[in-house]
Each structure stands twice: as structure tokens, then as C-alpha cells.
């Protein structure tokens, strides 16, 4: 099996040897990536699920990750905010290395928002409470400020009139938009999307994608696991094709759609783009 052919310019040492107070500026200027994965390996028992993933994402980039089920794409995106551990390699997010240190993990989780396939809204809280809980408890914002920000976000995702309903009273598309607003309320620097439209009815996919396109155009750094190729074509800066725990191919949407290099990529694309 061919190994990963994707070129990564930055080494972990380049970031870690830089004084911590300089890293934020360097990320801002695009000198070092905001997310760097270096030779990341992960095993589930004996099953080698991630086999040397290398990836760098610069501030403001929109990355689309796609590939067959079981290829490790969801597992990889979940290692970035440490919902999954990895056994080998290094991941550096926003200048902080992900280690076992719980303080580093909590710091990184504050700076990354995540949207799940199954929405995972808190069913016992209203929409507004879902959104304001973390800003109030983690960022220690006063309630009034958190609610003001929450209402702005609900307007942005198009459902300000649902603020006092419970998640169970909303449609799937509305729930996922609340989930996006909830993640944005923490004002994260990076947004992770783990198959955000896979659990939705067809007519609701568009309302969620519209919100994501708007977010991408506003300059948010996004890593998106999805099979929505229309979305990728419209806003992705780069696409990564995962198969069997490796990155098989990467490139701009242009390259991937018109001139894929690897046979496995061609086969997969032909299967999903009928």
C-alpha cells in the first residue's frame, strides 16, 4: 500500500520551539498552521484505525475530509479536540500541544467548536439555555451578555423565534442549526463538523449547508467531514481523501474533481457522484 503522499511543510518542533507568546501572532499571519497533525497513529485494540496522518490547516481555511465509511475520517477529526485519544504522533492546535494534560485539553476545547452528526443537543434545556450554558459556565460571561450573543447567533442561523422551545420540539435541520449556534457561542477559532448533514432528511440538508457556507465565507477555520460535494466545490480550500486510515490524496476541489491522481479516489468519486 502506498504511504501518504501529502506534503506537510511544518514540523511540530517549528511551533513548539517558538516562544508561546509569539505563536498566536504567527498563526494570525499565516506563518504556522492553526492545526498541525504529525504522523498521528491510533489503534482500537489491535485495529490500526489511523496510520500516520499528516495535515496542516492555516487560519481561515476550509478543509473537507471525505472517504468511505470506516476510513478513520471521523476518528481523526475527533482526535483534534481529544474526544478520541491517539497513541503516536503529535497534534498541535492553536499553538497548544494536545497531551494528556487536562488543562491543555480544556484550553483546546474552549477554542474549538464541534458539530455532531446526531446534533447532541441537551434535551432538558431550552434552545437558549443550550447555547448560553458553556459561555456562562466556562467563559464566565454574565447571563445577559451570553443571552444577547445567543440571540444574535439564532438570528444568524435563521431561527430566532425558537429560542424558548426545547430541542425535541424542533425539526432535524433546526436542531442542527441550534447545534452550530451553540458551538459558535463559545467564539471558537476552529470549527469541526463531523458529518453534520448525514442524519438529516433531504429537504433539511440545504438549510444547514447554507449556514455552513455563510460561516465559511465569514473567514472561520473549518474542518468538515462530509460527502456533500456541492459544499466542497463551493467553499473548500483543500480536500483530503481518507481510505483505510490514511490520507490517499489531497488537493483543491478543482484538482480532486477534474483530475484525481489515485485510483481509489477515482473509484470513490464515481460511486458518490452519479
Amino acid at each position: 500500500m502506498s504511504t501518504s503522499v501529502v506534503e506537510v511543510k511544518t514540523t511540530p518542533e517549528q511551533i513548539l520551539e517558538m516562544p508561546e507568546e509569539h505563536r498566536a501572532e504567527a498563526i494570525e499571519r499565516g506563518e504556522i498552521p492553526i492545526v498541525l497533525a504529525h504522523e498521528v497513529h491510533k489503534w482500537y485494540g489491535n485495529f490500526h484505525v489511523l496510520r500516520g496522518i499528516n495535515m496542516e490547516v492555516y487560519k481561515g481555511e476550509v478543509i473537507v475530509i471525505f472517504g468511505p465509511s470506516g476510513s478513520g475520517k471521523s476518528t481523526f477529526i475527533r482526535t483534534i479536540n481529544r474526544l478520541e485519544e491517539y497513541q503516536k504522533g503529535k497534534i498541535i492546535v492553536d499553538g497548544t500541544e494536545l497531551s494528556r494534560d487536562i488543562r491543555n485539553i480544556e484550553k483546546i476545547r474552549m477554542e474549538t467548536g464541534m458539530v455532531f452528526q446526531q446534533f447532541n443537543l441537551f434535551p432538558h434545556l431550552t434552545v437558549l439555555q443550550n447555547i448560553t450554558l458553556a459561555p456562562i459556565q466556562v467563559r464566565k460571561w454574565p447571563k445577559a451578555k451570553a443571552e444577547e450573543v445567543a440571540m444574535q447567533l439564532l438570528k444568524r442561523v435563521g431561527i430566532p423565534d425558537q429560542a424558548n422551545k426545547f430541542p425535541g420540539q424542533l425539526s432535524g435541520g433546526q436542531q442542527q442549526r441550534v447545534a452550530i449556534a451553540r458551538a459558535l457561542a463559545m467564539q471558537p477559532k476552529i470549527m469541526l463538523f463531523d458529518e453534520p448533514t448525514s442524519a438529516l432528511d433531504p429537504e433539511m440538508i440545504k438549510e444547514v449547508l447554507d449556514v455552513m457556507v455563510e460561516l465559511a465565507e465569514s473567514g472561520m477555520t473549518m474542518l468538515v467531514v462530509t460527502h456533500e460535494m456541492g459544499f466542497a466545490r463551493a467553499v473548500a480550500d483543500r480536500m483530503y481523501f481518507f481510505d483505510q486510515g490514511q490520507i490517499v490524496e489531497s488537493g483543491s476541489p478543482e484538482q480532486i474533481f477534474t483530475n484525481p491522481q489515485e485510483d481509489r479516489t477515482k473509484l470513490f468519486l464515481s460511486q458518490i457522484l452519479h
Binding site: L83, R109, T112, F116, A179
Partner: peptide, 13 residues
């Protein structure tokens, strides 16, 4: 469900 824990952790709780 595990997703409830994950959603809470992902928010930084």
C-alpha cells in the same frame, strides 16, 4: 447517550 458527554466536553465543560 455518550453523545451528551461528548457535546459537553467539546464545549469546554
Amino acid at each position: 447517550p455518550k453523545g451528551q458527554y461528548e457535546a459537553a466536553w467539546a464545549l469546554g465543560l
